[in-house]
Design a protein around this nucleic acid. Structure first.
Lengths: 341, 341
DNA sequence: TTGTAAGCGTTATCAC
DNA sequence: GTGATAACGCTTACAA
């Protein structure tokens, strides 16, 4: 029992070296898995390290290696709105899972406006993080281009607009919309309306395109009349639904391009005493707890956000390790989650 | 024009010193506002710094000062659930506003489970951040005690359970519940039910207590029959409402102890064709965009989360500056936000 | 395979 | 008031 008392609580590499009876360099080599250290010495050092609970000093390391051992999760969204989105929570979880076992830390940073963006860039240029996971959904966001131009290691969540040499992950929104439409068709729907997202976001464009494509493939109508636009925000879903109703559009199913918008659609329909079956036409692309957990009355198309975040983080680490690593993009298939009950 | 070209882009204190024709020490003194440097020298150095866009190296600084220039925002919640709460977004915003102009960085950290908590503690013990803003709502959370015991600079969002020498901010939940009840009474309600929060959280306890207190002060009934319990989660609000209805409780107003729970309450009432006036009895304590923004049909009691976060951050900075700074607690008054429309 | 020594960019302690 | 100079804890040539 008393043996536990004598753990020396070493704080520096020098102390470890002293206890192990080797030099600082050898300890450092062991720490960094540098080849060229005898198994015997390695074992010895390792045991001392384990016994003392020693952890290398980050600052000293950073000073010489010029790397920080942390990466940034940058949310480039006006208002930090996305923070309250379950999508974001999943991103954080996924990234954390990759990064934690590596001893790398995740730093959250917001870039809501021009001012914040400038400060952020400053921060990045000073090399305070080794790289950046960029969550940016708006086409007008200048950050992706800037990061690429300045050669700051960065990867993107969501397809970038235009051609940009940057790795990214995305969900196959076209296919996802297709899943939703197929589901509706299988439930007997023949006139399927859609509440589309903003057309200045790739996600908004793709989901509308997917809806149209799937309908045309089925020989079903996909005219402009069946479309109402929202902005992916919750309130806009209800408004778009009202608009559709006000226009007197004839439909028997609805595909809503985000679960946040979908949240109140059923209520609106109910208020108008409409009998669109409850298990049709409501699709969430945002991995939203809101839609699937709180209100399981909705069928949703779920994107594997957490998995995507993991892949994205890995690709960032690749890039950090080798700045000339090839650009990669992975498109994930979404999954249809039928409503419970 | 050409003049802009010769900005030397100095990267070290040494270069600044060379350009300014002074020693490293003098530059350092200027940088740290150390007294004992002539106005002339100071001006000179300052101008060179401005011209070159020099920024001191964080790692080198940390190595010698043992401070990191960043603070952690720790979310100690199973599942990182709180991440998707607008409450959290407001916290981040508030803290960022305080910290940004000071050049201090905010690091987000999750402590969802035992494993994560251990890693976090390790991280903190190694001094990777100078202090911690702890967001912890569950009474059973061991983190507050541990941080206090280990003398890690930390402050708390929300009243700690038991006596704990730690600074915190909180909202006056008792008064908030009172506001809600008074509002209901002024709208003519006389039998006011409540959907209470979990009683293992201070917030849950206080809001129930405030409801009871306000009713008794008015001479109105506050019996156990009028109470149903939820867990602050969205779904639980609707369930509690159903329970109240199933029990055949007679009421003409409802005070719901969180806006997340309140979100579906109106819908439930409507489904049961009940005529509780829409502008009564729905109270959000979580600064929830969900309740006030998306569904402005609810009257809510709003807590000034952003303001609270600012105060909390300031008190942490105090504490970091002086580990023996007095413990402070600030209780913020909530505000009644009548429903729009 | 191992050790010695020279930095990395600051701050801090001295003399001057 | 100012300037050498020694840390801070680590990595990394370069020697041995």
């Amino acid at each position: 029992m008393a043996g536990h008392m004598d753990a020396p609580q070493a704080r520096t590499i020098k102390e470890i070296a002293a206890v192990a009876g080797v030099s600082k360099s050898t300890v450092s080599r062991v720490l960094n898995d540098t080849p060229g250290v005898s198994p015997k010495a390695r074992e010895l050092v390792l045991s001392v390290i384990a016994r003392t609970g020693y952890q290398p000093n980050r600052a000293a390391r950073t000073l010489v290696t010029r790397t920080t051992g942390s990466i940034g999760l940058v949310v480039s969204e006006p208002h930090g709105r996305i923070l309250s989105d379950p999508f974001f929570a999943s991103m954080v979880r996924g990234a954390t899972q990759v990064v934690r076992p590596l001893g790398i830390h995740l730093v959250l940073m917001l870039a809501e406006d021009q001012h914040a963006r400038d400060q952020l860039l400053d921060y990045l240029r000073r090399g305070h993080v080794d790289g950046v996971l960029l969550v940016s959904t708006h086409a007008a966001d200048p950050l992706p281009r800037i990061l690429v131009a300045e050669r700051l290691p960065a990867v993107l969540s969501g397809r970038p607009v235009g051609r940009l040499p940057i790795s990214y992950v995305d969900v196959d929104s076209v296919a996802g919309a297709g899943l939703a439409v197929e589901h509706l068709v299988s439930r007997g729907c023949r006139r399927i309306a859609t509440i589309a997202g903003p057309q200045d976001m790739p996600a908004g464009q793709d989901r509308l395109r997917g809806w149209r494509k799937a309908l045309l493939a089925r020989g079903l109508p996909a005219d402009r009349e069946l479309v109402a636009y929202g902005d992916f925000d919750r309130g806009s879903g209800a408004r778009a639904m009202e608009e559709l109703l006000a226009r007197g559009v004839d439909f028997d199913g609805v595909f809503v391009a985000s679960d946040l918008m979908a949240l109140d659609v059923l209520a609106v329909l109910r208020e108008h005493a409409l009998r669109v079956p409850e298990d049709v036409g409501v699709v969430g692309f945002d991995d939203s707890v809101a839609a699937t957990q709180a209100r399981p009355a909705l069928t949703t198309v779920r994107q594997p956000v957490e998995e995507m975040a993991k892949a994205l983080t890995l690709s960032l680490l690749d890039r950090i390790g080798d700045p000339d690593a090839p650009i990669t993009s992975r498109i994930f298939p979404p999954k249809l989650i039928p409503r419970s009950t």
